[in-house]
């Protein structure tokens, strides 16, 4: 029986490693920081103005052809609904945006908070998707291609705002359901999203993200008594296209204030960085171990039946 030559053996190793390397070529570079598109649009949500009329929910439902809700959009009793240990309503396959009511201590009126996709500058959903189903458009929208989605739901795990929902009810074509900034029907034609347009109070201001940041800080400066001195989304997880001003502490009205200012992908960088290292070091390292650990005879006759080794061991 012909034994394996050293060259042959090394070739095997390299082919194995090479095949792996090919599939991973861009991993290490994928984590470069993206500041967002310079002309990205955004929406400034001023929660101090919201009166909880839920017009935005209704407009979204119509614009996106969503299924009929369980209750009328007029029905204010929906604000009393809680789920699972006091959870407020969240976005799901039937609603891309929801408004929740909060009663923070020390404020006279309730504070309403509108939830929808915040359209991150460097979206976690996008970076976690292994088929690249998400796109951050130059207008700022984070859109989704349902035709290639496999349904792993990693984006739902990754989203720090718990926004993407899944249409579990469909057996044949379940897809991710989330706010797309009305990209197809409005944003790309230069129009504001449906919720922004319908809002009677102009809770939402649509414009270029960088100008909205200036305007937001101007509002805080002009009316320090009305606002918490923070623009939520300016820096959170690398910045979002939708940003919030609030009349009460953010943590008391359902916001996660423990978020890092780095995009989510930064947490993954440590691992992604090790990938090319492992690919480069392991083959040589373990081949080296192999050469050190086995005698010349073992290498040359590796293909032989192991009984031979045992016989030798018994003899020696």
């Amino acid at each position: 029986m012909s034994g394996i030559s050293r060259r042959k053996f090394l070739t095997c190793t390299l082919v194995g490693a090479g095949a792996t390397a090919l599939s991973l070529k861009t991993d290490a570079f994928a984590s470069a920081k993206l500041e967002g598109y310079p002309d990205s649009m955004g929406v400034l949500v001023d929660l101090g103005r919201c009166v909880g009329c839920r017009s935005c929910e209704a407009a979204c439902n119509r614009e996106q052809n969503l299924p009929a809700p369980a209750q009328s959009f007029e029905d204010q009793s929906i604000f009393d609904q809680t789920f699972h240990n006091g959870q407020k309503r969240r976005t799901d396959e039937n609603a891309y945006t929801v408004v929740n009511r909060y009663e923070p201590e020390g404020t006279e009126n309730p504070v309403y908070r509108k939830v929808q996709c915040n359209h991150c500058n460097e979206p976690a959903c996008l970076t976690s998707c292994f088929v690249n189903a998400y796109t951050k458009t130059s207008e700022g929208a984070v859109i989704y291609n349902p035709n290639i989605c496999v349904g792993c739901r990693n984006c739902m795990i990754a989203c720090p705002f718990n926004v993407p929902a899944y249409s579990y009810s469909s057996a044949t074509n379940p897809i991710i359901k989330k706010c797309i900034f009305c990209y197809d029907t409005r944003l790309k034609n230069g129009q504001p999203p449906a919720c922004v347009e319908i809002c009677p109070q102009q809770v939402m201001t649509f414009g270029h993200r960088k100008e909205l940041i200036e305007i937001a800080h101007e509002r805080i400066k002009t009316h320090p008594d009305r606002y918490i001195d923070h623009l939520y989304g300016e820096d959170e997880v690398g910045g979002t296209s939708w940003m919030y001003l609030a009349p009460a502490p953010f943590e008391e009205i359902g916001f996660d204030t423990t978020m890092n200012n780095e995009p989510i992908i930064s947490n993954v960088k440590d691992f992604l960085g090790t990938v090319p290292m492992v690919l480069a070091i392991w083959p040589a390292l373990f081949t080296g171990f192999h050469l050190l650990a086995t005698r010349k005879h073992d290498i040359e006759h590796h293909g032989d039946d192991h009984q031979k080794h045992k016989d030798e061991e018994k003899k020696s």
């Binding site: 599939s23 991973l24 994928a30 976690s128 998707c129 292994f130 088929v131 990693n154 691992f271």
Partner: peptide, 11 residues
């Protein structure tokens, strides 16, 4: 069909 090479799940 479509590659998302920056994703850990891709790996």
């Amino acid at each position: 069909v479509s590659f998302g090479p920056a994703a850990v799940l891709f790996l």
